[in-house]
């Protein structure tokens, strides 16, 4: 177990290095003088020079990189030259709504996707299976922001059942918060639910063909017990991996859906920063989410080892 943990931690290093290089590189992908582009055509020579100095753009690239990594490690992601606040501060202010939205969508997706996938596998080839798979295909084919717009139009504008846009923090009343988050969460969770349903179905079908399922049947175990105890427990491993791997997409998707519903989270921050060409903030968001993604998958790996004895006791004979 300790050896396994060690290997997983070591495997993080190259990925995080690439993440750092790419994120750092973003600033230097700008054609021409980054500072001049960021400030726009109206900026004076002195302003540009001041920004170059404050961004450290006059230093050699390699020095810039290591000083950037150094300060990033201490939690200093620079200062937004547009808002004038430290990027870390701006980020954390916007993080709450995004996390709430992503969590709610994820919970919805699991609650819908897993049972649907089990049903489809259990009744493989029947109408129920085809219905679930058709639903999943729709879920994958409708991008979340588009589904959000359609839901907004139907339930907000035409039926008037739910608020069209806006955000209420859960601290100000859970019921209200849920009313505002309902449409965005459904819009965001649908693709996730579709992916989970597909994965669950495939994983369940895969376990059905395994010999230990035959053993269970030969033991006289009831079909229900066999399904939940023997098949689902084994299928859980790839399902959890899928959830972990799509979580990054979910958070990024949250950013897009936020824009649809005017939720003041990371997404709006990014969109506003793109308009302002406030690259330092964008860089911070990208770094934060990529690192979050890597860490989430690290924890999924650890969880995997808890669930799968073959990994837990690595070094055994298989």
């Amino acid at each position: 177990m300790a050896g396994y943990l060690m290997r997983r931690v070591l495997a993080l290093v190259p990925v995080l290095c690439v993440v750092a290089v790419v994120t750092f590189g973003l600033m230097h992908m700008m054609p021409g003088d980054a500072a001049a582009v960021m400030l726009g055509p109206d900026a004076s020579e002195e302003q540009v020079e001041a920004l170059r100095e404050s961004l450290g753009l006059n230093e050699p690239l390699i020095v810039q990189f290591f000083s950037w990594v150094g300060s990033a490690l201490t939690g200093d992601l620079g200062t937004s030259f547009f808002i004038g606040l430290p990027v870390t501060e701006v980020l954390f202010a916007a993080l709450g709504p995004t996390i709430n939205l992503a969590l709610l969508a994820q919970v919805l997706a699991i609650l819908i996707g897993v049972p649907a996938g089990i049903l489809a596998a259990k009744r493989q080839g029947t109408g129920a299976d085809q219905a679930v798979m058709a639903g999943a295909l729709m879920g994958i084919s409708v991008p979340s922001f588009l589904l959000g717009l359609f839901l907004m139009l139907i339930f907000g504008v035409w039926l008037g059942w739910l608020p069209v846009a806006g955000y209420v923090p859960p601290e100000d009343g859970l019921a209200d918060a849920l009313r505002y988050l309902a449409l965005p969460a459904v819009a965001l969770g649908s693709m996730q639910a579709a992916l989970i349903a597909r994965m669950t179905r495939t994983a369940m079908l895969d376990t059905f063909s395994k010999n230990y399922m035959k053993t269970a049947k030969a033991k006289g175990v009831r079909a229900r017990v066999s399904l939940y105890k023997h098949a689902l427990r084994n299928a859980a491993l790839p399902i959890i991996t899928t959830i972990g791997q799509t979580l990054g997409t979910l958070i990024a998707g949250a950013a897009v859906v936020e824009t649809v519903f005017n939720i003041p989270g990371i997404g709006q921050l990014v969109v506003n920063s793109v308009e302002r060409r406030d690259l330092v903030v964008i860089q911070g968001v990208v770094l934060l989410i990529a690192v979050a993604y890597v860490l989430i998958n690290f924890f999924v790996d650890i969880l995997y080892s808890v669930l799968d004895p073959r990994v837990r006791f690595a070094g055994g004979d298989s």
Binding site: N211, T215, N234, P309
Partner: peptide, 13 residues
């Protein structure tokens, strides 16, 4: 019933 492949006829988890 005893199966052919003892490697795969027991549930790994």
């Amino acid at each position: 019933m005893i199966f052919q492949d003892p490697m795969s006829s027991l549930n790994p988890v």
